[in-house]
């Protein structure tokens, strides 16, 4: 049942993306940026999904610390890893856009810097997990670190408000200048990426469960 739902989610996501790519390709060019601006239809949803993944990781980490239930720990790893993949895509697409529009791959403004820091922190989270053997200790320490790392996320989100950054202002809140039908396409892409993220997180979650099964089988093998 779970497999079927995930499969349907994946197919729906791919369907929306395929239809939407076609629609986006037909959109007119933006006056100053030409067609390069169309990267935004992937860049922004990726970052929104990454933010959501970080939020889920935070909630799961808090859940683990409160209940000591390893399901929460598995959820935290799964969503952190998928979020890290999305963050990587967000950084790379943003960088390619910057190469065309700014003429440089990277600039150290508050948005880009804090986003990179976020990436490093969540990569550090995965490294920290690798460095600890004992499962309970690993889950506890990783959850604590995840809570610490999350404090950077609001800084990333609000950095464009707090400082004058080279990164463009948001398209939605505070006077975004995005035409409604473009927003419409952005939203559809957003939904598709979200579904994709859910599918990947669920698959990763199941792998984490399989890993725990392996651990218990190993213990049984030792006991025999």
């Amino acid at each position: 049942m779970r497999d079927k739902i995930l499969f349907v989610f994946g197919v729906v996501a791919m369907g929306i993306l395929a239809w939407n790519v076609n629609a986006i390709a037909r959109l007119p060019e933006e006056t100053q940026q030409g067609v390069t601006f169309k990267i935004i239809f992937f860049h922004v949803p990726m970052w929104m999904c990454a933010t959501m993944a970080a939020t889920v990781a935070l909630l799961a980490s808090v859940g683990f610390l409160v209940t000591k239930n390893f399901k929460f720990d598995a959820a935290a790893v799964a969503s952190t890893e998928v979020g890290l993949a999305f963050t990587t895509i967000g950084l790379v697409t943003g960088s390619i856009w910057g190469r065309q529009i700014w003429g440089i791959w990277w600039t150290w403004d508050a948005r880009l810097t804090s986003a990179l820091v976020c990436w490093i922190l969540y990569a550090g989270y995965l490294m920290l997990r690798k460095a600890i053997e004992e499962p309970t200790q690993r889950a506890t320490f990783a959850a604590v670190f995840s809570i610490f790392a999350f404090i950077d996320v609001p800084i990333v989100v609000f950095s464009i408000k707090w400082w004058r950054t080279q990164h463009p202002q948001p398209v939605f809140w505070s006077g975004g200048s995005f035409p409604p039908d473009w927003t419409h396409h952005l939203m559809w892409n957003m939904l598709a990426m979200l579904l994709l993220g859910i599918v990947m997180t669920a698959v990763r979650l199941r792998q984490e469960e399989a890993q725990r099964e392996i651990d218990s089988l190993r213990r049984m093998a030792h006991a025999l």
Binding site: T36, I39, H43, T93, I96
Partner: peptide, 9 residues
């Protein structure tokens, strides 16, 4: 550049 971006993603 658009194609680079999408391909990379």
């Amino acid at each position: 550049y658009l194609s680079y971006g999408l391909t990379a993603a």
